[in-house]
Design a protein around this nucleic acid. Structure first.
Lengths: 199, 199
DNA sequence: CCATAAACTCGAACGCGGTCGAGTTTTTTC
DNA sequence: GAAAAAACTCGACCGCGTTCGAGTTTATGG
């Protein structure tokens, strides 16, 4: 019964995202028009809108791939014997390096993730994955006695994530320029936080 | 000599911003077209681009007014006998209430201020004014003995500003919904930070 | 199977942000 | 005060994101 339709739909959707991923990487987001994508996917321009409500949403599909890659690298890291501070610096610097690999891409993605146009269900799947990694760090640090036992894991994650956001804001606003400056700044902020958390 | 030209130019510029402010407030940013603004200002559409390089820049001129108002309210507050924690909560909740007065306006402004398209000279005039207020709080708190003497005022400001950013992100991502929740969250995060900062 | 409904496709057109360039007004130069 | 230069204005146009609507394909039910 069904099937033929669904299969074709899935194929077309894939064709769109693949064409978009390729073109975005080649020419950049702004320089790639919907018509370019449609042509590359072998369909009409208007048909794209049957699959994605707006251009930004195609971009977000593209981001999913990229985020997946970053996430994999984050999990691979697993430095087990560093201090919590070093683990956190490491974690966020990987994220930072990834997101600022291309300034424009990072800016666009951050705008969409930090101040989304509407509450974003997709983000609510992503975020916990990062928070889980952070919470593992905290758990281990707690067992090593590096942080107090009564700390709320979730708010700890939020705390460091916020400081990371601040660093990104400083980067995009032009207050810090090199990766080293960002790392130094994060270290200062994290230490401020930790010296309280660790008493 | 000059004068006639300059005066006319200033008048036209004012006419544009005033028309824009009125129309943005009436119909919202997206729904207001450059042509609307031009017509309301009594000039041609293309002329607008002689005064502002892009639509967003007219929006930012509009924001200047709004930010000025918010800033005035912030300075008027001056609660002198509260604890640092309460002062900070107060300060950031005023900012939060202002910026989320209109969700769309706040989102757009935040995107532009936190992740600007290019390094923004205007922002570099604004930011220090807020940081100055914060540093006064810290100075006073230091004299009261609420925080350690060796803290770097600038990074303290950055720290709390970052936590505020985190709260905004939580709001726009839909993790917290009421002002009370935001305030509660800020209080937890600020306390985490302070208990370190205050030893 | 056929008839009817539902879903999908896409050329054409719309709206809007932004640019061009020719015409006009002001300033400068001598 | 005339001629050249510079600055300003705006109708016409371009490109692109998005929508419309008519035509086509697939699914459904008797």
């Amino acid at each position: 019964m069904a099937g033929l339709r669904e299969k074709k739909k899935a194929e077309t959707r894939t064709a769109i995202t693949e064409a978009a991923v390729r073109l975005f990487a080649e020419k950049g987001y702004e320089k790639t028009s919907i018509e370019d994508i449609a042509r590359a996917a072998g369909i009409g321009k208007a048909t794209v809108y049957g699959y994605f409500p707006a251009k930004d949403d195609i971009f977000l599909a593209y981001c999913d791939d990229e985020l997946e890659e970053s996430f994999a690298r984050l999990q691979a890291e697993e430095g087990g014997e560093e201090t919590l501070l070093e683990q956190l610096i490491n974690f966020f610097m990987i994220k930072f390096t990834f997101i600022t690999k291309n300034r424009e891409f990072g800016r666009q993605l951050l705008r969409e993730m930090v101040f989304p146009r509407q509450v974003n269900e997709k983000a609510k799947e992503h975020d916990p994955r990062y928070f889980d990694i952070l919470e593992e760090f905290f758990q281990a640090a707690q067992q090593r006695g590096e942080i107090a036992a009564d700390q709320n894991m979730f708010y700890l994650s939020v705390h460091f994530f916020s400081l990371y956001l601040g660093a990104l804001a400083g980067w995009y606003a032009g207050y810090v320029h090199s990766h080293q400056e960002v790392e130094d700044g994060l270290r200062i902020l994290f230490t401020q936080a930790l010296e309280g958390i660790a008493r």
